[in-house]
Design a protein around this nucleic acid. Sequence first.
DNA 1: AATTGCACCAACCGCTTCACA
DNA 2: GTGTGAAGCGGTTGGTGCAAT
Length: 315
Amino acid sequence: MGRPPCCDKMVVKKGPWTPEEDIMLVSYVQRHGPGNWRQVPTNTGLRRCSKSCRLRWTNYLRPGIRRGDFTHDEETMIIQLQALLGNKWSAIASYLPERTDNDIKNHWNTHLKNKLRKLYDHDHDRIPSSSTSSSSSSSHHISRGQWEKRLQTDVHMAKQALSDALSLDKPSIFLDNFPAPQPTSSYNTSTQTTTYASSTGNIANLLKGFMKNAPISSKSSSDSSTCKTTGIDSSEGFESLLGFDQSFGSPNGSDLSLSNMSPKESKPELIGAQLPFTMFENWLLDEAGGDDVINQRKTDLTHFAFDQNPDHFRN
DNA sequence: AATTGCACCAACCGCTTCACA
DNA sequence: GTGTGAAGCGGTTGGTGCAAT
């Protein structure tokens, strides 16, 4: 016997939220705080699944969410974090506190993934197929094996750079560019009171839209035009975004430098904060095995020299 | 002007993890 | 240790708007 549904599917409303519903939810959360979502439909009269309420709050109404255009720096961070973490959107979102995991996921799926694919397809086109020997290939052609090896190297270098960043007794380029992860969906209740008081952005917009009697959610279009204005269309532009050298002269896919990141974007209040062992460390060290191996790896990583290949930190 | 195809993104679904009795 | 409900998470879907034909 399966788990009973979280709510009566015959009664709950589905589909886009109306401004009225948003206001009901916002006012409830302002009074009671987020959490206990099960009670929200009952207490607010909203004919919505508790899950839907939580999602609406987390992904849209929650204060502190920045919507609209992803900056170049944000895109760079997402790409690099995705390469490191995979599709762990909540983990990635923890490094971009103003963005929701859903937003990042959508942006990745609709923009960044396609750009990466184009980039790699472009390179694939220049790679002789494995069945046809590349004995006569020109100098800028590399074999499929070489290409795959370089990809592996990219990932390896990224891991090394990251590990170095996690070395606590050494200044870290990584730390300067990636702020400590922040809790995302699990809303930080210790700060919520003040945050509610200043939850001007989303709620003000919400009310503005409500006053105009215009749906606010549907495409806050000016917001969602994201890459139409800022997107990098050419693979050449995307190279610069990634720091890739498309000719694979060096494995720049591991470039963790975000030196062009503005102070605002790098969230200076977080820089230098001692990182607790996070999922990054766990992820790295999980692979290592026993404590001896871990300690050895940390020692090794401490001596990893970033200037082995200055290209890694080129803009 | 009508139709079609595509991009975008909010919201949903179902599985997993967490917390607690 | 086990069962149960709540919350978290990632993949997917469906509605909307816009551009191309």
